[in-house]
Amino acid sequence: MLTKRIIPCLDVKDGKVVKGVQFKNLTVEGDPAKLAAIYAEQGADELVFLDITASYEKRGTILDVAKRTADMISIPFTVGGGIRNLTDIRNLLNSGADKVSINTTAIRESQLVKQAAETFGSQCIVVAIDSKRIYVKEDVPDKIVVDTPQGRCWWEAYVEGGRTPTGLDAISWAMKVKELGAGELLPTSMDCDGMQTGYDIPLTRTMSEKTNLPVIASGGAGNLEHIFEVLTEGKADAALAASIFHRSQYSIEEVKKYLSERGVPMRPIKEEV
């Protein structure tokens, strides 16, 4: 049976993790590849690196991170952030990344998604969509409006690390990128991100139902119940989280134990060979 995936996400700047990561009895600063190896050993199903390197000159640092990570772990990992063209994608894949996640450029030049899927295969093209709720009283033409416990809303897609609104409906955009050849979706709820009050369940559920693509939920994980909710009610296929793992609030093992006891299919931590 296909299991749901638990995916720690690491923010990387100039080749280093941005915040120190606290494992029980051990604080690991710095090297993303070493942290990746620890998470892989603990039973993470995949990893995501979000490269937030600002200067274009230092963009090459993430390639080195990808190479060293690929040498150390044997689970898949995705790199996102700052991807502008086919060359960026090719360089990352050749450096050992299994997938790339595209956000701003996908919206600015949607043909990149199509070209990338045709060149490298849909399986390695993840489209990340930063989504923010816009509450409305009535239906809005061209927007997919959904009833949520907080009121009726649609979701607006943002680019440039959540700084720039696009006017685009995030759900319609997700449906469009499916047609263009994206293999997976990574919606981040801007309303929930960093709040630790739970994922935006209606967002992931609507995106999952409307596209039928695998959905990686992101933004809002604060406890085990939140992860359970998004993988069941939220119809997500994978749950991405950062701070709950980095601050050692929960280990991967605790998350997986909690979820499997509640009937969510999980790949066990202990592998017998």
């Binding site: 995936r5 199903d45 693509l213 695998p214 994978a238």
Partner: peptide
């Protein structure tokens, strides 16, 4: 089923 089939299966 959703495609691609992505993830860990037995």
């Amino acid at each position: 089923v959703k495609t691609p089939h992505i993830g860990w299966n037995t």
